[in-house]
Design a protein around this nucleic acid. Structure first.
Length: 569
RNA sequence: UGGGAUGUAGUGUAAUGGUAACACAGUAGAUUCUGGUUCUGCCUUUAGGGGUUCGAAUCCCUUCAUCCCAGCCA
């Protein structure tokens, strides 16, 4: 026991740069009460996507790891874009991932009064002023990346005048766009965020939470750092594009009365190839009707992947595997697929479902006989339960599992070849029935009664095993076969328009798949594997008892498909 | 032509002055009542150039490349 502990403590667990910072701060007594406090600060103006999962796992994960806490704070400072609908979806998405913010739920709008008072104080201290420049003039005065800006004529307005005007803005006496409150920092700063950034703007918009109480709303650069300070956030983690805002963050938290100013740290946001992640582009897909909605199983939104059948565990594993750093990076989609397959392989219930049915008739099997075979729910689980599958003379097999004229290395069913029907019998194909166009519509075979259970007493082996469903005892279901929404690694890279790279085959609907009766027990949230076809789940939105609809979460790896391609078949 | 940041296998992440590694992808094989799983092998790496040092991915100088910033968005 002691040895083990020693072993563990000497074992070097690689830390990411954020963990290093936190451990260093903790070790050097820089953290009040030795309690780190992080926050996840979504703006409620859209649905959470996979990129947010990284931020959620980071903020909640770090808090968990160091026995601190993580606040959920809605960054609701722009009433024109935000909505209660989003607030609710965000909460349910975070819960789905398995994180709990407990009582620490906040809204930046809770701080509007405090923010207002701080703004007044800044004016009194000569650190902020009311500017009447128009948006266009503001732009002119700001300068460019290479040229410094110039001071607004209003910059030297008296404190009394500023106070009066700001109060009038507050009271709604001035129209939108007529005035803004600006920080007085440095119009010549090489960092544009420091060229007297806007602190407050006038908006006669109703806020989802504060209603019409306010007609002036604080800006991000002012609200965010102060909200962090109010909540005693110790480590404020955000994405790389805010790096340039850090001086503004420090400016805002450098006000009297803040004992332990929070600090901002930036990490690289998550990018995944074959996916688009920006809210704008996702919204567009929804608006144009290219997808079924924000929760379309092809969408990289949390609600989308959830409906697709991804498990929260697999996504958390994915996030832990990609790591955290400051380098802009693009993660392979295949890693995410690997993670979901690995997780689902361990937990999915196996079912036999034929997606593209081909009739198979066993000529030497009794006409009306029904016998049952026992199938393991999950062979990966030693304590797995079993269920019964009915077997009859007429069955369906996968059309792909029979070829009249097979290529080399094809070891499924073809005339004269013997294969196994999983759990049941060895069969040998004898003849085919074709339609007028020459398509095979029925395969006839004979079975070996001695091979009952799927093995021959004489020890002879077969190379192929097919799944099957009884033609008379099976049930019909709908299967929705999803693939990547985009067919290029970087959608839009070639033409500039990401819609040019949509995958025309991102959804194939199979309305007459045949399934073993056990499928009737499948519930929303169950993880299933249709043997040899992939991982599936019950569609939580449209599936009904009368019409069962399943979504394909991911295919199984298919080395035969690769081989076929290589052989040029 | 301003400022900020970043460069390690195809991709992502370790190694924090002491033998460049792990995972995914790729590839070859073994096992298998899922052409799945599992197992084994292989492939490929410090952006370039200089310097410090017994020793550099790591420190210094320099060049190059990429990303972000000119909302009254966050």
């Amino acid at each position: 026991m002691d040895e083990r502990i020693e072993e563990e403590s000497t074992e070097k667990v690689p830390l990411n740069f954020l963990e290093r910072i936190i451990e260093d701060d903790l070790a050097n007594g820089r953290v009040p009460d030795n309690t780190i406090v992080t926050r996840f600060p979504p703006e409620p103006n859209g649905y959470l996507h996979i990129g947010h999962i990284k931020s959620i796992c980071l903020n909640f994960g770090l808090a968990q790891k160091y026995q601190g806490r993580c606040h959920l704070r809605f960054d609701d400072t722009n009433p024109e874009k935000e909505d209660m609908e989003y607030i609710n979806s965000i909460k349910s998405d975070i819960r789905w991932l398995g994180f709990d913010w407990g009582k620490y739920e906040y809204h930046a709008s809770d701080y509007y009064q405090q923010l207002y008072e701080i703004a007044v104080r800044l004016i009194q201290e000569g650190k902020a002023y009311v500017d009447s420049l128009s948006a266009e003039q503001l732009k002119e005065y700001r300068g460019t990346l290479t040229e410094p800006g110039k001071n607004s004529p209003d910059r030297d307005r008296s404190i009394e005048e500023n106070l009066r005007l700001f109060e009038e803005m507050h009271q709604g006496k001035h129209p939108e766009g007529s005035y803004i409150l600006r920080a007085k920092i440095d119009m010549a700063s090489p960092n544009l965020n420091l060229r007297d950034p806007a602190l407050y703007r006038i908006k006669f918009a109703s806020h989802p939470r504060t209603g019409d109480t306010w007609c002036i709303y604080p800006m991000y650069d002012f609200t965010h750092p102060i909200s962090d300070a109010i909540e005693n956030i110790t480590h404020s983690i955000c994405t790389l594009e805010f790096e340039d805002h850090r001086p503004a963050y420090d400016w805002a938290t450098d006000i009297d009365g803040i004992e332990h100013a929070p600090h901002q740290y930036e990490f690289a946001r998550l990018n995944i190839n074959y996916l688009v992640m920006s809210k704008r582009r996702l919204l567009n897909l929804v608006k144009l009707g290219i997808v079924d909605g924000w929760d379309d199983p092809r969408m990289p939104t949390i609600s989308g992947i959830r409906r697709r059948g991804y498990s929260p565990e697999s996504m958390k594993d994915f996030i832990s595997r990609i790591g955290v750093a400051k380098v802009e990076s693009v993660v392979d989609y295949s890693l995410m697929e690997f993670c979901v397959r690995e997780d689902l392989n361990k937990r999915a219930t196996r079912l036999m479902v034929v997606l593209d049915p081909l009739k198979l008739v066993i000529d030497n099997y009794p006409d009306d006989k029904v016998e049952y075979f026992e199938a393991t729910d999950n062979p990966e689980d030693p304590s797995s339960k079993t269920h019964q599958i009915p077997f009859t003379k007429e069955l369906y097999i996968e059309r792909e599992d029979f070829m009249e004229d097979p290529p080399k290395k094809y070891h499924r069913l073809y005339p004269g070849n013997e294969v196994r029907l999983k759990y049941a019998y060895y069969i040998t194909a004898t003849s085919v029935v074709k339609d007028a166009d020459g398509n095979v519509v029925e395969v006839h075979c004979t079975y070996d009664p001695e091979s009952r259970g799927g093995a021959a007493p004489d020890g002879r082996k077969v190379k192929g095993t097919s799944h099957w469903v009884s033609a008379t005892e099976g049930v019909t279901i709908e299967a929705r076969l999803y693939d990547k929404l985009f067919q290029t690694e970087y959608p839009g890279k070639a033409t500039g328009n990401y819609l040019d790279d949509l995958n025309p085959d991102s959804l194939k609907i199979v309305t007459d798949a045949k399934a073993e009766p056990e499928i009737l027990n499948a519930k929303v949230g169950d993880y299933l594997q249709f043997v040899r076809n992939g991982y599936f789940c019950v569609d939580g939105k449209v599936s009904t008892k009368e019409k069962l609809i399943f979504n394909r979460t991911a295919t199984l790896k298919d080395s035969w498909a690769k081989l076929k391609e290589k052989m040029g078949v």
